[in-house]
Design a protein around this nucleic acid. Structure first.
Ligand SMILES: [Zn+2]
Ligand SMILES: [Zn+2]
Ligand SMILES: [Zn+2]
Ligand SMILES: [Zn+2]
Lengths: 149, 149
DNA sequence: ATCATCTTGACAATGATTCTCATTAAGATC
DNA sequence: GATCTTAATGAGAATCATTGTCAAGATGAT
């Protein structure tokens, strides 16, 4: 009901291609840097515009990191959410009929209409989870100042 | 388990008080403006620091608007989510054991540990939902330029 | 080839959030 | 109350992601 027509351009193709290859969430700035490093110079403004357009047309997911930066990622299709490793960045797409129906129920119970939601789960993936007491992952600081700071 | 000690100061009290009275989500900038308008001058940096501290210590919820701006709100207690009206800003705190257990399940199924999640529902509250065909809520533009720009 | 438009890109402009660091004020001590 | 230690404050500079500007370039249709 929207998906405005977009002219195929070299820069649009470059962005899509890179996004396809990477597979993980990337910020517009990241994308821009990689493209130029890769010789595929694309204006920063264009990267932003392209990414937003793709997100609008679907085909790309956008979410915000804890510090508010927007990051994009190619996505399969349909509505889903993510499980993101805060250590290595690995991402898993997950679906949950239970959650979807819950949000619908909650919304209508409270008289809200035309709703949409955001849901992301952040944690440590299997590889990044410290299994043995000698492999801390994210932020470790075992042997250090015993006094209170 | 953390809640570092904070010295009670006039500015901290002012921020807390205003936050208590308002009840809805407000950005640090907002808070700062209101405080100064209210005569209660408080440095912008201090507003930011105070808000973040309060969010860390719990007692204040922080979430990001669709454009990435951080907004804060006094919160009752415990873990919960929000139903936010995108038109008038009204907010409803909601809890959902179903969702909580779902995220736990999904997390463990995928080997993720030490997780936390964000979940917000945006929509139009009852008052802002256009019931009759003459009361558009959010963005209305019925009688206007018929040409495409 | 030609025209009307959509895109692009270099760079300025915004705007939120963070940093710096000298000054102020709690809290504890004497 | 005077004094000392140190967290808290604030004015303004510094960051930095994102958006705006607008002339120049590319695309699809004629
Ligand atoms: Zn990981
Ligand atoms: Zn969902
Ligand atoms: Zn409303
Ligand atoms: Zn929850």
């Amino acid at each position: 009901m929207s998906v405005t027509f977009r002219r195929p351009t070299r820069q649009r193709a470059a962005v899509e291609a890179l996004l396809m290859n990477i597979g993980d969430f990337m910020s517009a700035q990241d994308l821009h840097a990689r493209l130029r490093a890769q010789g595929q110079g694309v204006g920063l403004a264009t990267v932003y515009r392209t990414l937003q357009a793709m997100a609008d047309d679907g085909g790309v997911d956008m979410l915000r990191t804890s510090d508010g930066e927007a990051v994009y990622r190619r996505c399969s299709t349909g509505h889903h959410h993510h499980l993101v490793c805060r250590s290595c960045g690995r991402t898993v797409e997950v679906e949950g009929p239970a959650v979807e129906s819950w949000t619908d129920k909650i919304s209508s119970e409270n008289g809200f209409s035309d709703v949409h939601h955001t849901l992301e789960i952040f944690g440590l993936c299997a590889s990044c989870t410290p299994t043995d007491p000698a492999a801390p992952a994210a932020d470790a600081d075992p042997v250090e100042a015993p006094a209170k700071d």
